[in-house]
Amino acid sequence: MTRRLLPSGESALLVECDGLDEVLALHDALAAERRPGVVELVPAARTVLVAVDPAVLPLESLATWLRRIRVEEAPAATASALGEAVIRVVYDGDDLDETAALLGISPEALVARHLAASWRVAFGGFAPGFGYLVSDDWVFDVPRLGAPRARVPAGSVALAGAFAGVYPRQSPGGWRLIGRTDAVLWDAGRPEPALLAPGRRVRFERASG
């Protein structure tokens, strides 16, 4: 695997990886042995940004760490100290039937696959508390809506590309809505403000009633 270090100003380096699997593994390794002076650890689809306080961890030392760090092939199950998040979903999204039809399966089968998959939060970035969820069990590539909705309600459970997600609050959005949840995805007042922090394992359950 190749790991390219790209410049990103005076207090950060951007690490470019071969793909999302390496991003996840690198993120886990960096999080597991996080060094003093690391201010931000921001995974994305192909990159991990590591921002530091250069007075504590100079960029040269950061570069050495990033080049040398050993990355497990399979991400450690203990990657997130938060444990598994369970999100209860009512599967009545406006796009459920159409999305299933696009994928050539029944709505029931799509829901069953969504429920059966073991998800993990790969990265965030769209809004506070929004997580891009990936799963080895998920084989679908879901096209986005042709025209995004101006208002997607908070708690909407959605699909786009290879990702699943939940809208933390009302916002515009182009993902396909398959259900909804009462789970509070974002609360700046609690110790862990985001339910779906990168690295966390996630499972969906059917809400009763």
Partner: peptide, 9 residues
Amino acid sequence: RPGFAHLGV
């Protein structure tokens, strides 16, 4: 508000 970029902040 440093330290929360991974959560989208």
